Simulated assay, not measured.
Amino acid sequence: MLDGKVAVVTGAGGGIGRASAIVLAANGAKVVVNDVGATVTGEGQDAGPAQRVVQEITQAHGAGRAVANSGSVASWEDAQRMVQDAIDNFGRIDMVVNNAGILRDRMFHYMSIEEWDAVIKVHLYGAFYVSRAAIPHFRKQESGSFVHITSTSGLIGSVGQVNYGAAKMGIAGLSRNIAMDMQRYKVRSNCIGPHAFSRMIETVPGQTEEQLKARAEKTRPDHIAQLIAFLGTDAAAGVSGQIFGVRGNEVYLYNQPRPIRIMARSDGWTPEKLAEHWLPAVKNSLTPLERTRDVYPWDPV
């Protein structure tokens, strides 16, 4: 379903990115495999992970189906080179998968400026940089697909991830507005909030070895990769501005914020009137401070 299409996948040296690059190639796409080769917290650089994924694709599908790129999504110049690698090697670009990310988990009252900046730069700036580098080509050819990886840390909430959650919620807004700006050019943009066992998930505290093993068996990166591949096909031409989730064999569509309770007073509101009339009326409709595990208490299929 992706014959003749070219994709750039960021953070493709492992986890969801690696699975996406492999599934895209298996469905006929040619792939720029990007990975800076850093640790989960963003330190270091190693071209090896991206090159190994290219070798996997080459062994499975023959030479010329993938090239490696070790640039950083947090660099505007590197983002432009990723897109140029697609043009130089394959003659076009049809899809961008913004998957690269790092973690710098810390409780909010201890979070440093550097921990905030590092995560926002890779996730939110990175998604913008690579998308912005690709859009002139998408606009000119009047086709293209962005798939951005958001997270339940932003959509629902998570303890100790203020920086990560803010970046991931920002990506949801970025995707929605790209979809609206680019609709006239037949360019689409969607988000996926994945549940998958990866090195990032391994860092989440409070999980036993048994829980990690069970999660690894039921929530694999290739589950998410199948939906990513679909969103790049012509069959998904009418799908844009949406937020999806994948958890094992479950695929779901998220609602997006809309008013659920509206009250008005002809004489206007005061703090006293809000306390006396408005709060009692909306109190039962307030969104509780739930974690992802509270919203998804059942085991994935």
Rank of each mutant, 00 (worst) to 15 (best):
K283R: 14
F90S: 09
A179C: 05
Q80K: 15
L289D: 15
Q161I: 00
Q256S: 14
S151I: 00
A50D: 00
A264M: 14
A214D: 06
L279H: 14
M182F: 12
M200D: 06
A225Y: 03
Q59E: 13
V40A: 12
G154A: 03
W278L: 09
P194S: 08
I57M: 07
S131P: 07
G4A: 01
Q141F: 05
H61E: 03
A12F: 09
A166H: 00
P297E: 02
A133K: 12
Y164L: 01
P49N: 07
Q161V: 01
T233N: 10
V130M: 04
Q45P: 00
F108T: 15
S72E: 07
R81G: 04
A275V: 09
T10S: 06
D85G: 11
L231E: 06
L286C: 10
R261D: 05
I171F: 13
Q80V: 14
A25K: 02
K218Y: 02
E202S: 11
R18E: 05
V282T: 08
D88T: 10
T10H: 04
Y129R: 02
H223R: 09
V67R: 11
L286Y: 08
I243Q: 11
G157Y: 01
G37H: 09
N255F: 11
R92G: 12
Y185P: 00
G11H: 02
P221H: 02
G42L: 01
K273N: 12
H148G: 03
V32M: 08
S285I: 04
E142D: 08
L174P: 03
M200T: 11
A47I: 03
L289Y: 14
H223Y: 13
A66G: 09
H137C: 04
G268N: 03
Q141Y: 07
L227G: 05
V23S: 09
E250F: 05
K186F: 15
Y254S: 05
Y129A: 10
E217D: 03
G42P: 00
T219E: 14
D3Q: 14
D105E: 10
V147W: 01
V54S: 04
G160Y: 00
F197D: 03
I22N: 12
Q51R: 13
D294T: 06
A167H: 08
R261W: 07
R139H: 15
E114T: 13
A229S: 14
T203W: 02
Y164V: 03
D234I: 08
G248W: 07
S198Q: 00
Q45A: 06
V54Q: 02
V23N: 07
E115G: 12
G37T: 10
P300D: 04
S240P: 08
G48A: 15
K186T: 13
V33F: 02
W116K: 02
T233K: 08
M111W: 00
A264G: 15
P49R: 08
I192Q: 00
E142C: 11
N98P: 14
K168T: 07
D267L: 12
P205V: 05
N249W: 15
S143F: 12
Y110F: 15
V295S: 02
E142Y: 10
A225D: 00
A86T: 10
V54I: 04
F90N: 06
G144K: 01
I201N: 14
D78C: 03
V96D: 07
A225F: 07
D46G: 07
L231P: 13
S20E: 10
N255Y: 12
A79T: 05
R293E: 14
V9F: 00
L253E: 09
Y125Q: 14
V6K: 06
D117R: 14
D267S: 12
M82T: 02
V147I: 11
S240E: 01
I135R: 06
S131H: 02
